[in-house]
Nucleic acid binder design. Structure first.
Lengths: 125, 125, 125, 125
DNA sequence: GTGGTCTAGACCACA
DNA sequence: GTGGTCTAGACCACG
């Protein structure tokens, strides 16, 4: 997982989003255990409190749950849940972009062109 | 201009973005004067200092300039500047959306479908 | 005289400085009359109050004096006065530049090089 | 850092310039943390908001960056950035001085003499 | 009237 | 503890 400590997006959210995406993409499956607080904290080089906050966020969403003394696990509905949420995130970002372009006087074709450029850039990666 | 005081986006940025879009869309033209600090503050129901910070942001970007005792004016290159910036904002949002979808395991068609939905929703407004 | 309404330097100071330099350079001589408020205001396209403030500034410095009903005149010591002041202004600007360069870790040769560049640029005009 | 509250240069700019020079001179190095808002505010005897505005200025220039909850840090390109900017500041001041002298009828030798005096005065400090 | 700076003090998010 | 935002209200410079 890539963490950018200079980003204005809080680190705990970057971590939570990274895990959400990993679950949605099937990298972690329902029932499977997640990296422990300390392991993940070492991995991404942040304070364990920060990782804790990320896991709290995910638990509140019902994406993961903890079993005392056993660790953290992906919930049964975790993957569907994460996918649904990812789709909403994408939709929200697109809505914002479309709205911003529209407000600035761009027409539908202008906006579509920008989207195509964005898709092409991604495919070339 | 619509301001959402509960948004996580700072009010001063919401105001700055609103003006930027207005300039990009030609609502305010180069050389024209903008609403005074106090007038806009009353209009959007915030403290004049907050409006000033928004105008400050725009002045630093070269979108507007101030003449003490006279008021605030749209810079000559203001419209081009704002359009350019709006385009970049749209592109950044789309890039983020595409990236988020991709990370969550959505394929290009999934992502395109979400974009289409977003465009359709906008057109229906 | 060139006035830049977008400059952060107040217009009345730009006008006062312009006249000071003109007197120092001998464009206006002691005993000679200066353009009237209204004429100068029309010339540089500003409010007569602003020109008045510039003339006030100059009168306080003893560079010019007014004769009621007759107009404004350059004082006897005006040219020497203005030259002395110009020299001080130049010295102050150079002192600031030298100080700024020094504080930023530039050595004497670095600073001299910048000065030479500045002189060369002026000569080429 | 020396702050002159009676100067016409706003306090926040005096602070920003002081930090810029310190970075250019290598007193603070890339990656290193800067004094916290509150500490610096106590140090220079001004309101923390004023210090924040200074840091804001520097962050917008890319000289420093902030990490909420952690502190303020010198950017990787901070030193080069600051040096470049310092050079421009020196050049601007010299240009202004040369221009002022020229407008007042001083010739190149007069102007050079003032510069030499300025350099000598600095060396004697 | 205009914009610009500064203070005091509040509250929030983050680590 | 850190930085970030906002308000209220003061005072100044300018035109």
């Amino acid at each position: 997982m890539k963490i950018d400590p200079r980003s204005h997006v809080p680190i705990y959210l970057q971590i939570a989003d990274g895990i959400r995406e990993a679950v949605a993409a099937g990298i972690y499956s329902p029932g499977e255990s997640l990296p422990s607080l300390r392991v993940l904290a070492l991995d991404v080089q942040v304070n364990p409190n920060t990782v804790q906050r990320a896991y709290d966020e995910l638990a509140r969403d019902g994406l993961i749950y903890s079993r005392r003394g056993k660790g953290l696990f992906v919930a049964e509905q975790g993957k569907a849940n994460a996918l649904e949420r990812a789709r909403k995130t994408v939709r929200r970002l697109f809505d914002q972009g479309v709205q911003a372009g529209h407000s600035a006087g761009m027409d539908a074709n202008d906006i579509r062109a920008v989207f195509q450029a964005s898709m092409s850039a991604k495919e070339k990666q």
